[in-house]
């Protein structure tokens, strides 16, 4: 009897774990992602994207993004601009090493989806809406961010672009 019980329990656990894996909403961020920004001058990209992506088109209620990028990973293609961008005059990578986004609500939109949440940058938290699509295991989204809203070099409003268009392309896998 005891022998049958353990065999039965093992089968139940096996099925349950397989079902859990099938139902998992979590995605791993692939290495070939890109987070590019374009404000005319400067433009470039960030690396160091990390976080958890829980997404199921059929279960948006429980879907959630908690992601961050490493400020020090900024690359404008010019060493001098990179150094300036990381300095305390601009992004202050030492004091604010991460730019993070935490979604509160993900809903269906006219084309694709939209994630409402908090963008934390340069010590300022602001509510934003990130429209995105999810096709072929690739998240694609685009937002505009005004650096003045995040107190980034407000002393020089005309130095470089104020509004940065940020294009996000994140391939994921289970």
């Amino acid at each position: 009897m005891k022998k049958h019980f353990y065999a039965f329990a093992a089968i139940v656990v096996l099925f349950a774990s397989a079902f859990t894996a099938f139902q998992s909403m979590d995605w791993k961020i692939s290495d070939n992602y890109s987070v590019k920004f374009d404000g005319g001058d400067p433009s470039g990209e960030f690396k160091g994207l990390k976080g958890t992506i829980s997404f199921d088109p059929n279960n948006l209620k429980d879907s959630k993004f908690v992601v961050s990028i490493d400020v020090a990973s900024i690359n404008t293609g010019n060493g001098m601009k990179n150094t300036h961008a990381k300095s305390d005059k601009w992004l202050d990578a030492e004091k604010y090493p991460l730019i993070s986004f935490t979604s509160k609500e993900i809903t269906k939109a006219a084309s694709g989806y939209q994630a409402k949440g908090t963008l934390d940058m340069h010590g300022v938290q602001k509510e934003i809406t990130l429209p995105f699509t999810f096709d072929g295991n690739v998240f694609t989204g685009s937002i505009s961010v005004n650096r003045m809203d995040y107190n980034i070099n407000t002393a020089e409003p005309n130095h470089g672009g104020q509004v940065m268009k940020v294009d996000i392309n994140v391939p994921v896998s289970k």
């Binding site: 293609g77 010019n78 060493g79 990179n82």
Partner: peptide
């Protein structure tokens, strides 16, 4: 070399000059 903008696939542009 100080002002040039390199393609983004090139790492460590700080070392270019």
């Amino acid at each position: 070399p100080l002002s040039i903008t390199l393609p983004l696939n090139i790492q460590f542009p700080e070392l270019f000059p």
